[in-house]
Design a protein around this nucleic acid. Structure first.
Length: 577
RNA sequence: GCGCUGCUAGCUCAACUGGAUAGAGCACCAGAUUUCGAAUCUGGGGGUUAUAGGUUCGACUCCUAUGUGGCGCACCA
């Protein structure tokens, strides 16, 4: 039930009819025509720009065309109370009482489907997000991408798509070797009192390694930890799984569950890299060659080598990319190409990757590779989440990985809570750096949009409590013949925008639109609520402690939208705060 | 040097994929609580949307150039 789409179709059909009769000319595409909300100072419900789009090809002024159309539009539609033409050529429409009653009836009885986008073709999505190195618990930097990916999944699921949430475990390569060594030294420290070589910059100094080491010792009493070389393979597997345990706990505390964890080592061991490379070779995207040094390197330490390269320049990348190191082992890129080949083999319609800002430069080459393998453009969509600037007591808070002093997800969630973390992290476009102010996020006041929205739901709940009706039960009405006031229609109009909000959030993968919408809806509601102070007629419950059906349904549909929005964002809607 | 990304009120940000007089919150000023919960609301001041061009009926939105901030530019992952 998207009123904007319904009227867009009506208008398009009308002008097509007129075109068949030879009364007007149509442009090649009707894409430019849209139906929107008029600015608030106009007392109308929807508006359209048709006449502006048709103006040029018909060589008439938009105003003339608009005047030609309005009578025809009105004649075909019994819900229009008033239709007029405004300045440049907009057509404004105001609906009558019957219209709004039908609207309320529809979204009240079918509230579960309200907002769901039925126009989109149902697709199979694979969304990869977080994929942090399994070398320790998650820190704040991982948080934003994690929440972004989770909420994008929720939106897609809300629209009835099939979604698989996947975590790629980078358990192959040098970082894992360093990590395993660090765990090894911690074990030696505990068992033999050998001091951990803290001065070695390649090792991971964090205290969590001690916990991991302790767990490994107590769970693997039979293992001999004397020589690193003898147990490195075994230890790697154990250490990575310990670290994944921590990561999964962190994700759980944020309310995030991945459907699938996939291991890089498995991909390499299954020879998937070799097979994807031979596939690309057949298509002539691979060659032996040399790449130029990057400008920033001064050319000093740069050695030109002949190596296996992928022709990503064919797809608009600035240079071709290396697949193999000089010791013949695979680069990260090579195994990632294999991983994406693996994704493609599983027959998804669309792949989505959520990346951190520091990986933005990587997008071109991996989308190139996916295009080369699949032969289709835009099969892989990469979404970048920008940095989070931490602020504590008004001052920026720096994290240092070397010192091992950084804020973990655990710290964050225990301090500000899951809901506030999710809501605030989403309250901005992911293209923009985000200030995350600890002191403000903890504050339960108007500074904090989460509580503002939750408070709206709590207020509605309190009305239901007062009249002894369970807010979670469905209300039954047959007679929808209510007289809504101007202020109520303002809120109904806001509610009518909900499907549009979902549609944009979904098509642009911009979940931040949802918290922003909910905030606006809550704002309209709070404003309406306060009118009851001056004017007792506007209170939901009258002096006789009775609430009219009209107001009951009205409250119910607001609470339904807030609830379903908050569910997508992944936060609670408490009935009392 | 190259690439990606941002630049909107004093501050933090919106603006429905090109629409009408660019909107909120914070801060500032002035008001509203015998309440259906003040974790709220009402009103006020505050803008050449970084700058200069271009595209068109119409630009915060698209294009070009410049300035400026962030991130990236490996055989790392």
């Amino acid at each position: 039930m998207n009123i904007f789409d319904i009227y867009l179709d009506k208008i398009k059909n009308l002008i097509k009819k007129l075109n068949d009769k030879g009364l007007i000319e149509l442009p090649e595409s009707l894409k430019g025509i849209n139906v929107d909300i008029p600015p608030p100072n106009f007392d109308y419900d929807i508006s359209t720009n048709v006449s502006m789009v048709l103006s040029k090809i018909n060589r008439k002024s938009p105003l003339d065309i608009a005047n030609q159309l309005i009578d025809l539009i009105k004649k075909e539609d019994s819900y229009i109370e008033n239709i007029t033409v405004a300045k440049p050529g907009f057509i404004n429409i105001k609906f009558n009482k019957t219209y709004w009653n039908n609207f309320v009836k529809e979204i009240h009885t079918n509230y579960k489907k309200f907002g769901v986008n039925n126009k989109e073709k149902k697709q199979k999505y694979l969304i990869e997000f977080v994929s942090a190195n399994p070398t320790g618990p998650l820190h704040v930097g991982h948080c934003r991408g994690a929440i972004l990916g989770d909420v994008i999944s929720n939106i897609l699921l809300f629209n009835n798509h099939v979604v698989l949430k996947e975590y790629y475990v980078n358990d192959y390569g040098n970082q894992i070797v360093s990590f395993t060594k660090s765990v090894f030294f911690r074990i030696k420290e505990i068992l033999n009192n050998e001091k951990f070589p803290i001065e070695n910059p390649d090792l991971y100094p964090g205290d969590y390694l001690i916990e991991i080491a302790k767990n490994i010792i107590s769970n693997n009493k039979k293992l001999n930890f004397d020589k690193f070389e003898n147990i490195s393979d075994k230890l790697t597997i154990i250490a990575v799984s310990e670290s994944l345990k921590l990561i999964k706990e962190n994700l759980k505390s944020l309310g995030i569950n991945h459907d699938n964890f996939i291991s890089e080592t498995n991909i390499v061991n299954n020879k998937e890299v070799e097979s994807v490379i031979s596939k690309l070779k057949e298509k002539d995207f691979i060659y032996q060659g040399k790449i130029e040094a990057p400008k920033s390197e001064n050319g000093k330490d740069w050695v030109k080598r002949k190596q296996l390269l992928f022709k990503s320049t064919n797809f608009g990348d600035d240079k071709d990319r290396a697949l193999q190191k000089s010791d013949k082992s695979w680069t990260y890129f090579a195994s990632d190409v294999a991983y994406h080949n693996n994704k493609l083999d599983r027959n998804f319609d669309i792949l989505i990757n959520i990346l951190g800002a520091d990986h933005a430069g990587y997008i071109k080459r991996i989308t190139s590779a996916v295009e080369a393998i699949s032969g289709t453009k835009n099969k892989l969509i990469c979404k970048v989440s920008q940095l989070v600037k931490l602020i504590k007591d008004g001052k920026p808070f720096k994290m240092s990985k070397r010192k091992g002093d950084y804020i973990t997800v655990e710290d964050l969630v225990s301090e500000v809570g899951k809901d506030a973390t999710r809501f605030i992290m989403l309250n901005r476009s992911s293209d923009v750096e985000l200030d995350f102010d600890f002191t403000k996020v903890k504050e339960k006041s108007k500074d904090n949009p989460l509580y503002y929205v939750q408070y709206c739901y709590a207020r509605i709940s309190s009305v239901f409590r007062h009249v002894n009706i369970d807010i979670n039960k469905e209300l039954k009405f047959n007679n929808y013949n209510f007289e809504y006031s101007k202020d109520e229609i303002k809120i109904l109009k806001k509610i009518s925008e909900w499907p549009k909000c979902i549609e944009v959030a979904s098509s642009k993968l911009e979940p931040h639109r949802i918290p922003i919408y909910l905030y606006e809806l809550a704002s309209d509601f709070h404003s309406y609520w306060n009118m009851g102070k001056d004017n007792t007629d506007k209170r939901f419950i009258n002096e006789k402690k009775i609430i009219s059906n009209e107001k009951l349904v009205f409250l119910k549909i607001i609470s339904n939208v807030i609830k379903s929005g908050m569910k997508i964002v992944g936060v609670d809607t408490p009935e009392k705060m």
